[in-house]
Design a protein around this nucleic acid. Structure first.
Lengths: 339, 339
DNA sequence: CTGAAAGCGCTAACAT
DNA sequence: ATGTTAGCGCTTTCAG
């Protein structure tokens, strides 16, 4: 069933049908319009937009790559992206790279082959092949970064969060509540968010006159398992700590589990601070004090920015930084340090 | 940059370039092949697969609709689907309907317009417009159901779980551990999984000679909030219960929170059983006893089945039922009833 | 092994 | 207001 069939059945030319399908401003008489619409309805015709997009040179598709769909942080971001895309008549191609550069590249290649109108990427952090990078560049498809920087797209604008500030605020909170031996349970070392949060952590220690101890700093991945294992390592070591700065809520989830298994009470013996404020954090026991990111909004604004790039709106290549806020819950004790 | 440009640069016809791009069995001499490949590499040409797919009448795209990307159950299912799709060179169009029939329909429409080769759907449960239903039918795009039945696609095969059996096993476990007043915190009433789990629950009660009490049965949605609110309702009522059958782990998460706020100890005073075994369940405190579903595999096999449908393999329209297994953790006490 | 040409479904001038 | 026509980028016969 094609546009030709409809044209034939309606006794008009396919140009007219095309105008109807696309609500073309250059009107069609109300009479023929209805006539054509009726036929379309009756036979269940659906235009092949892919055919149209080859002429139009736009597909109304956006590609989005995230590293881990199972990390609750990302689905929430996706929701924001999705909502914005749908509001503007775009469909999102959501792909999960599994923090694997190979998959990330495969998806990027697929995006170009499918001629998406724009790409959003939360990169796994590893460098991609020069060949692909060039292809993307040549393809002229705008790219917007979400939440993470990328060495492969140094010029691309993005929506970021002020991680250093957030980590600083969070660490100060731990210190305020009496912690003096705070370990840093970070995500992957190669990702900028980890490094930025580390800087904020270190800065807070410095300003409070707490000496920095490298053995308190552990990297891993943004996963519950990583948090669990690193926390266990610490508990099994000689280190005596009284606070944990987790680089992400899911890391904190793992840490809390390890602490529970060791029967360490939180926050009485050890305070735990997360980062992200994912949905589950309020439901944990103890509920998690954390630095909340505007997760949904990051996704929403990223698509906004991407659409701006597509339309070459002014200011479309400026990055935006969003802010975090401290959410107090049970896993830390405000003011314990004052007693 | 098109196939014509490459042909011109290589001094061959575009037919030859096309053969190279697609690894066409009807060979091209190794010499020209390399020559063309070199040029492609050098100029960073990426073929426009959308143009090709209009001739081929296949896009190598699969559409997948899930109701809630923020319910950890689904991302895990998506992972399975994605892996299978990628292994076979297909890309997944993942869409989140937000349990909203309007969005679901919009996405389905988009799937047809984009001429995906197949559709996977975990429907929100509400009926869709007849018009759309007919279009899908006429489009001849194969449909496979995941986890949930759909009234709109009664004939479509699917990958399902034996929910009744699972709920029966789970409820028996609660009874075994001494519960006699077990409430049922279900998902949405309109979804078949809820109804099936209810049947298993009721059957277990019956066989144990525990009289069924309709006031113990509450429906809601598959969400933490729903579990929280329903549980609170029960706790604020006169009802004295000692067990909770939650229709999903995320419902159990909400229930556990409500219980904690009321200082009800789990499992000592009330046992809680979940359904799904999502990743977080093991990390909760108390960790959640639950009926594990082979979530990843549901997604994987659904895509397998869809590809089988696309290729018209034998047996491709038979549904498959998978089984659940009881995972014992801290939120219930095995054998408490024996003391 | 390679080229030429027809056509996939649709859009967009340009006519009428 | 509507029809006609020339592509869009690619695949696929069919010749040579």
């Amino acid at each position: 069933m094609t546009i030709n069939d409809i044209a034939r059945m309606a006794g008009v030319s396919k140009g007219t049908v095309s105008r109807v399908i696309n609500n073309n401003p250059r009107g069609v008489s109300e009479e023929t319009r209805q006539h054509i619409l009726d036929i379309i309805e009756r036979v269940g015709y659906v235009p092949n937009r892919m055919a149209g997009s080859i002429t139009l040179a736009r597909t109304k598709m956006l590609g989005l790559i995230i590293p881990d769909i199972q990390n609750m942080f990302f689905p929430q971001m996706v929701r924001g992206a999705e909502d914005c895309a749908m509001e503007h008549g775009y469909t999102l191609f959501l792909c999960n790279s599994d923090s694997n550069i190979q998959k990330e590249q495969q998806y990027l290649q697929a995006f170009i082959e499918k001629r998406v109108d724009g790409i959003l990427i939360n990169s796994c952090g590893e460098r991609m092949e020069e060949r692909l990078r060039r292809s993307i560049q040549k393809s002229n498809i705008p790219v917007v970064l979400l939440d993470r920087r990328s060495k492969d797209f140094p010029g691309a604008p993005g929506i970021f969060v002020d991680n250093e500030e957030g980590a600083y605020t969070g660490t100060c909170h731990l210190i305020d509540s009496g912690c003096t031996a705070i370990c840093f349970l970070g995500g992957p070392e190669g990702v900028n968010t980890t490094a930025e949060r580390f800087r904020g952590y270190r800065q807070a220690l410095k300003e409070s006159g707490i000496s920095f101890r490298p053995e308190y700093v552990l990297y891993g991945s943004y996963s519950t398992l990583s948090g669990y294992e690193r926390m266990k390592n610490i508990l099994e070591s000689e280190l005596k700590i009284d606070g944990v700065f987790a680089g992400a809520d899911i890391i904190a989830v793992g840490a809390l589990r390890a602490l529970r298994e060791r029967q360490v009470s939180v926050p009485e013996e050890i305070s735990v601070l997360g980062f992200d404020n994912i949905a589950i954090s309020a439901d944990l026991s103890p509920s998690l004090t954390t630095m909340a990111q505007p997760i949904y909004e990051i996704g929403y604004r990223a698509v906004s920015k991407l659409l701006a790039q597509i339309h070459r709106d002014p200011g479309c290549d400026r990055s935006e930084w969003m802010h975090t806020t401290l959410v107090l819950r049970e896993s830390t004790q405000k003011g314990r340090g004052l007693k």
